[in-house]
Amino acid sequence: MMSPAAVLKRAAPVLACIGLLAVWQAAALVLKNDSFPTAVEAIRAIPDILGDKEALINILASLRRMAMGFGVAVLFSIPLGLLMGRSRAVAAFFNPLLMVIYPVPKAALMPIIMLWLGVGDITKTLVIFLGVSLPVIYHSFEGAKAVEEKMLWSGAAMGLSSLQRLVRIVLPAALPEILTGCRTGLVLALITMITSEMIARQSGAGNILFNALDMGQYDTVFAMIIIVGAMGICLDAIFERIRARLVRWSEPQFDMPLSFS
């Protein structure tokens, strides 16, 4: 049997959702605005979207681009961040570049990228890639920088070459920090995914959302917001599971209950 406190802890996120929906429902009933459907109306519209083949293809296309952009960004950013963290020359070269790119909203680059690469998958995937890369590079960099020198010396004494030390000592030692960056990156991937589809309307979950907005189908708009939100929660929960498994050995960190894990 779980203690009452444990039951409450488990139920808290669910209660929070129910609370949010209740506030929404009440607000919508009070305001009686056409562009603000009630929670019940929005939830009723969800099966219509998920039952529609066209809509599902759109959503899956979004997820494919997101997975692609996220995956490539992680594969590119982790080695770069680690190298920057261990080599002053590499850091000195890339840091100013990243500082320039960092504050620019990645979606703001879209019109230019669209001019070059069109409105297709490549442009949207590239924008997601840009959005994800920076936090992953930053956290990999910080993680690699913090690796204890003596740990690397111990490895060197065992005969590990500098490349082996990077892969077999710096990478695992920095992994908790790297995965923190990846988690931020995952949420950013979802955000940039929707924004990119808002700018380059052609397909995707964002396209459904903004088309519905144009046509005044507000229940569909809010249903899509719920669907995207649920996707974010699920992805984050899955990622958190994987993360916890990979870095079980590290110190327990204070963790905000962002996910349902």
Partner: peptide, 20 residues
């Protein structure tokens, strides 16, 4: 000229591999 397995260090900071 560099570290090697003929000389084994033991540090005050332990420097263990925490993931192992």
């Amino acid at each position: 000229t560099g570290p090697g397995p003929d000389r084994g260090p033991v540090f005050q900071e332990f420097a263990l591999f925490p993931w192992k």
